[in-house]
Design a protein around this nucleic acid. Structure first.
Lengths: 249, 249
DNA sequence: CGCGTCCTTGAACCTTTTCAATTCAGGTGG
DNA sequence: CCACCTGAATTGAAAAGGTTCAAGGACGCG
């Protein structure tokens, strides 16, 4: 009934779990190789030789770790968070299949954030030095890489608007809409989800307390917009949810 | 007595205002060519052939404009803001000499934000298509470009933490510290500034109302941390200002 | 099946916003 | 050169939204 946050792997990958094949990967429409010519995808495949399993709760990289690779979520679900020196900790994002992790490490050679798996996951490992080299030769790959970095900037801007000018209800609505849209782009139901994160993590991401998130879910349920049972969530009135966001502060 | 947000131009530029010379530019330590070998700087100079004056209040680019170039602030001061369809508008950043504008346009070929000059300014125009080409050949330039994009991501994360978990006083303190640090990196006084933006614009950037910004300035003045007279601002106790940020929520 | 973690809900409190009234500063024109 | 005028900034008081503190309940994992 509800979406499971795991994509079926293509036959080739199922048979040989260590072989990476971007060309046949189910994610190729939402991943780094999107739109690249076959020749460049092949190059990328050779680069992304390694795959890595990350158990639920395990840390993929943490703040200050030497930056050596970018990761692409293959299956599963991650959260990234910053940890300021004064213990201030904030979830900066949730990441699902096809999304890149670790781009913030390019700047000074150390990751600026921490990535933790929220369910048993797999990532593709993209050694950064070799990616850099590859972007020299391959124009389309280089441009795609730049586009993805830029997309992150656009997303961050949207997040700033959310944090800077939206009320609790709007933030939660915007969060859910964003989540469902990304799930839909991956072929999942756009009405049902099993959340992989706690209310606390959602709150941290949205600049709210876990109590406010919980209350907001409850209110949306009373209003008939959502059906909430613990982590199981169902959007009953998508249009009304959209209205909640659009409504000016 | 107070810093003026304008750097003296090198003699060569003063004599021929249309000739761009990164090699001799006063900004080369805080700009795109930072750390590049001379040969690559020369290439960059040839690329950045155009300079552009932007009068106070004028729009450099706006949301939806076709993305053709990245801009680098040469003199003056800019704000960037997003304008959501529902009229929700937020200042996403303030930008001074040496800082890049427009990177958010790479993603889909249209700027995602708007840039407005807050004082009479000049920008260097970097045609993006040609920059892309140049990054193919020149390894250091390409890496530097990636580093700068990544730095934006790191900054955005810091901004999210500010917006998501700091109280008004902490936000204002963090804003001032950040501003003064950037001014100092450009050779200005790190204690005095004439702000180029209104309380409203500061508030929009920090997720606060203009009244709260004003009250916070007043309180800091009462506490002897700042001296505020309209847009003229002086930091009297930098360490105390730092303490304000570090103090957990 | 029990324990721990997560979630929900209530009530009081606090910060920030909102609304409103002055005050101030800077630029313009007489 | 000064008076005026307009946008910006300050300040106060009331209201709202969210947090904090606290207690109880549900769920899932071992």
């Amino acid at each position: 009934m509800s979406s499971r946050l795991r994509l079926p792997l293509p036959p080739s990958a199922q048979h040989d779990p260590f072989k990476v094949s971007c060309s046949t990967c189910a994610l190729r429409q939402v991943c780094l190789p999107t739109g690249l010519p076959a020749a460049e995808v092949v190059q990328l495949e050779r680069l992304v030789s390694d795959r890595h399993a990350v158990a639920r709760g395990a840390v993929l990289f943490k703040t200050g770790d030497v930056f050596e690779a970018i990761y692409i979520v293959r299956t599963g679900f991650f959260k990234t968070s910053t940890s300021a020196e004064d213990g201030r900790d904030q979830v900066t994002g949730f990441h699902m299949a096809g999304e890149l992790l670790g781009l913030d490490g390019i700047y000074d050679g150390a990751y600026a954030s921490q990535a933790v798996a929220l369910e048993d996951s797999q990532v593709c490992v993209v050694p950064y030095g070799r990616l850099e080299d590859l972007t020299r030769e391959f124009d389309r790959l280089r441009r795609q890489f730049h586009r993805l970095m830029s997309r992150e900037l656009v997303r961050d801007q949207a997040m700033m608007v959310l944090l800077g000018s939206m009320r609790a209800e709007q933030r939660v609505a915007a969060f859910l809409i964003n989540l469902m849209r990304r799930l839909r782009a991956r072929g999942f139901s756009s009405s049902s989800v099993v959340l992989r994160m706690t209310r606390d993590e959602i709150g941290s991401h949205l600049g709210l307390t876990l109590e406010t998130v919980s209350r907001t879910f409850s209110r949306m349920q009373e209003d008939g917009v959502l059906e909430v049972r613990a982590r199981e969530l169902r959007v009953l009135k998508p249009r009304q949810l959209l209205q909640l966001v659009r409504r000016a502060a």
